[in-house]
Design a protein around this nucleic acid. Structure first.
Length: 629
RNA sequence: GCCUCGGUAGCUCAGCCUGGUAGAGCGUUACCUUGGUAAGGUAGAGGUCGCGGGUCCAAAUCCCGCCCGAGGCUCCA
């Protein structure tokens, strides 16, 4: 229950109309005026009962004594809480508050429940005139919790603070050294950054991250002030880039054996299998009220897939079963101060693949495949093992029983790895790894990840029939082979910023570039011929456009450079009378003379095995709305 | 959420300290120029100076509140 008490000179209120069906009937709709009193605004929340009403009255009485008042108005006020009890229950509790109050307070009034009311209030100007409290059922003995920090803390949040971690560096070959004793070499500098980042939490920088400027300059994405923070808009080039990454990751997961499904983005907080899972995590979700249901927006694909898998009829012969979904979006209500460009969002696109496994042996076998898949997917997206640092987390028990398995993963990664070890299992997983991108400001962000989950099979009542006919809960692996799609773009942009910082030419992978080839006519007389070339490129599935604006060649070249267009071909009289083209290759900063077919082959070779989508803007630059730059 | 800094034309920013007619570059529109590998020329349009309140004869400028962003703290299953 939420309680806001105001010591007031007067209040006037007037019932206007019934707001909800369950509103109580009242005798008169005339304006009510009360003077020199305490107004107690009350919101009844889910789970509140008579004992809460009693505790609230004790609290109110204490407050009335403090401000030396003997008059009380109980005023139902739903807006104090986002976790309201159903109206039928709430009206009962409100009446209980009124009844209990009458036992110890001289004059008790109550405003009607369920009505839209207008009110006019004058609060006294002394320091104690305003007082907010949150009263919850479990706080019965102490009766109240102060309104600040009143947010319900999940058990996970509390326990996490107590959880002690032991940090090591694990090298290929299996040698594990406490981080404090490990001598970082020059090539380990990013791992050192990651270690400091995770352990000492020392992160002092005072700059805007490079990718934020680039995502705007390249017209990929931008903030959307009309939405909630951390919900971005994606411009045509960004949307195309995201589509391509999404298609690529999805195809790779399906080739691995993933079965694509789609599940709802919102779930009932009160659903039995949801509640226990839900309460283990910090209250960091978007809440939505719909009729009498309290819904929340998913923060991962787990729920949907688990709820679905629960209804499958599974035999041990079917295992492992791999369910896959690309969530657009997953939502996490990160604290406002934590949001950064495309690195940390409140709405993001997450490939999420769960594998239901028969036992630990099968889980480990599957885990290896997914490790390979993740390395390969990330590499193909343009982020190799050199660009990322690995962290692995496990319980002491798991480590002791699976040393060889863990060493195998480290050897495959072939670089020293940061280890976090716990004495006891607190989370639902026994083993988890992730690849982190370390950006120019020394910030670490997780991309790919996989976990061995030994808890949710049971929690969600997912079962399979074992060979002997018994029912068992599977071990579940949680893999995102690429991490959030937005974060992949963040890493690619940060990586190119690093390149330009060291004097190189920043670029994006060719298959993710909006324009792969730009055709530039010297004058309007050449436009027609250019369009023929353009048609050939397009029919060969090369994304090409034409700068047919009335500008100088120099300017058009300059703009193709600032847009990071890889190939530019200038077409004038010379080219119209020759089979060869002069191609400007941005990666070399030089011009080359080749045929159109050779250019097409060159582009195709570099985009082999990658998805293709057509241009997402008009081909003619003269008809293209300008976005940014 | 808390602390610090910022928000001025579509974009990047100056002006604010010390109150007195709202500026530049890019982009855009029109015209001239018809071009050969990183910016051709001239002219015009374009503003609720984030929003709301206050002080003042007068507020982009000073004060208060709010919104949005950046960085830090914290957090990141």
């Amino acid at each position: 229950m939420r309680l806001l008490q105001l010591h007031s000179d007067f209040i006037e209120y007037e019932p206007i109309e019934k707001e909800i069906r369950d509103a109580e009937d009242i005798a008169s709709k005339s304006k009510v005026r009360l003077e020199d009193l305490v107004v107690a605004f009350v919101a009844v929340e889910n789970g509140d009962d008579e004992s809460v009403a009693k505790a609230a009255v004790d609290e109110i009485k204490k407050y009335l004594d403090t401000v030396k008042s003997k008059k009380l108005l109980v005023y139902p006020y739903a807006h104090l809480s986002s976790d309201l009890a159903p109206p039928v229950a709430a009206v009962g509790i409100i009446k209980s508050v009124e009844d209990f109050a009458k036992e110890s307070i001289d004059q008790v009034y109550r405003a009607p429940f369920g009505w839209t009311k207008s009110f006019n209030i004058k609060v006294k100007g002394h320091p104690l005139a305003e007082n907010a409290k949150e009263i919850s059922k479990q706080a019965e003995h102490e009766h109240v919790g102060h309104s600040h920090g009143g947010e319900k803390e999940s058990s996970a949040l509390k326990a996490e603070e107590k959880l002690q971690s032991f940090w090591y560096i694990l090298q290929p070959g299996g040698q594990m050294t406490p981080v404090k004793e490990y001598k970082f070499k020059k090539q380990d500098s990013n791992l050192q950054v990651l270690s400091n980042y995770e352990i000492t939490k020392n992160r002092t920088v005072n700059e805007q991250p490079a990718h934020v400027r680039l995502m705007k300059k390249l017209a990929i994405a931008d903030y959307e002030p009309a939405s909630d923070a951390g919900n971005m808009r994606y411009y045509p080039k960004g949307r195309l880039m995201k589509s391509l990454i999404e298609q690529y990751v999805t195809r790779r997961v399906m080739e691995y054996g993933g079965i694509e499904v789609e599940t709802p983005i919102m779930y009932d907080t009160k659903h039995p299998s949801m509640e226990s899972y839900f309460n283990r995590f910090p209250a960091r979700q978007y809440n939505i009220a719909s009729d009498n249901k309290q819904l929340f927006l998913r923060f991962a694909a787990c729920f949907g897939q688990f709820l679905m898998a629960k209804d499958f009829n599974i035999s041990y012969k079917h295992l492992p079963v791999k369910l896959y979904e690309l969530t657009r979006y997953s939502f996490r209500r990160e604290k406002s101060g934590e949001l950064v460009g495309l690195r940390r969002l409140r709405a993001f696109t997450m490939p999420d693949c769960h594998a239901l496994c028969r036992d630990l042996a099968q889980a480990k076998e599957e885990f290896r495949k997914r490790f390979e898949l993740s390395i390969s997917v990330l590499d193909n997206l343009g982020l190799s093992s050199e660009d990322v640092e690995m962290a692995i987390r496990f319980t002491e028990e798991f480590y002791n029983e699976n040393k060889e398995f863990i060493a195998e993963l480290i050897n495959r990664f072939n670089k020293p790895v940061l280890v976090e070890m716990w004495k006891e299992r607190f989370f639902y997983f026994t083993l988890k790894w992730e690849f982190n991108y370390i950006d120019g400001l020394g910030k670490a962000s997780a991309l790919s990840t996989d976990q061995i989950d030994v808890e949710n099979g049971k929690r969600y009542n997912i079962e399979f029939v074992e060979e002997d006919g018994s029912m068992k809960n599977p071990i579940i692996l949680h893999n995102s082979p690429s991490g959030a799609v937005e974060r992949v773009i963040y890493a690619l942009l940060e990586k190119s910023a690093k390149v330009s910082k060291t004097g190189g030419i920043p670029s994006l992978p060719l298959w993710l570039s909006h324009t792969q080839v730009r055709v530039i006519p010297v004058s309007q007389d050449h436009v027609k011929y250019c369009e023929k070339i353009l048609a050939e490129l397009t029919s060969s599935q090369v994304r090409a456009d034409i700068d047919d604006r009335d500008e100088t060649v120099g300017k058009k070249i300059r703009e193709s450079e600032t847009e990071w267009v890889r190939y530019a071909i200038v077409i004038g009289d010379k080219e119209m009378n020759s089979a060869r083209l002069v191609v400007r290759d941005r990666s070399e900063g030089k011009q080359r003379e080749i045929t159109l077919q050779e250019l097409i082959d060159e582009v195709k070779a570099q985009t082999k095995d990658k998805p293709y989508l057509p241009l997402n803007l008009p081909q003619r630059l003269s008809t293209r709305p300008q976005i940014m730059v």
